[in-house]
Amino acid sequence: MSAETTRRIEAHLGRRARWRISEIVFWLALLAVIFAFPSRAALINEILVAGLFALSLDLILGLAGIVSLGQAAFLGVGAYAAAILASWDQADPTLGLAAGALAAAVVGFATAPLLLRGADLTRLMVTLGVSLLLGELANRNGWLTGGADGLEFSMGKVLGRFPIGFTGQRNAALYSFAVLFVLFALARRLRQSPFGLALAAIRENRLRAGALGIATSWRIVAIYAVSAAYAGAAGALLAQTTQIVSLDLFDFHRSADVMLMLIIGGAGWLYGGIIGAGVFIVLRDVISAATPEYWEFWIGLLLVVLVMVGRDRLQEYVRRAASRVALRLARDAA
């Protein structure tokens, strides 16, 4: 054995484990934006929550290669779980967040076996079908969900100290930021772990992954439940920071939008969802300020161009640009 080879193997396996400067700058910049633009706190909060939602999709699409058109199901479940809890006077945000994530994880775990059969097309349909079913369930059980009227409620203070909502928009954004950062760090860790490596193997070649003794089905169920929990947490955040929930959380367009965000930023490297959410929401804000009715057209055009030019190439470009910007910020700060 040569010590040099051993060292290179260790370095290779651990090469993504250390936080790079560009990553640290990214998070600091995000935090700085919240303080720099207090008047846009609501918009920033929306980006952070959407970023978490897109991160949840990245866990299954980017890491495990499973295409889903029904991620809104878990957003809705998480949001309603947190909202219903709050409307029963359990208004502590942390509790609601945990409940939202847990409820979504349970639904994810229960529906994951449906994903194990069939090809991508079947999965698209199953995930879409489940989200529609859940939306209809919420619609028909108005005693619990408020039906078409939705639910309005008020939230307690985060950790008993920081009020969120209309009086504390910046606190709301900070709360979302904290949750997003913690969950992101967890997801990042998961990606480096043997479990993350096994997911990559399943994505690349499921047949061979099975031939190495990986119980591929269980791994898929596990990551789907984790992804559902993340989406549920995003839903809970959305409910808590806007203090209203309605049935459109389950809509198809939510699932489609989140997929667009992730694709814009690039799937598989975990930052794509957050960057994509930022681009998507800022674009929507800018375009709809100019042409309120037609902003969807431009998003559609962007998508068509994205696919035609090739997602891989564009994503590589976004990735490089993002780390260049981060590095420049770091230099300027130093």
């Binding site: 997929m259 667009l260 559609g300 998508l303 068509v304 994205l306 696919v307 997602r311």
Partner: peptide, 9 residues
């Protein structure tokens, strides 16, 4: 993605 793009347009 492509066909959703077309619908959105």
């Amino acid at each position: 993605l492509f066909t959703i793009g077309l619908v959105l347009m």
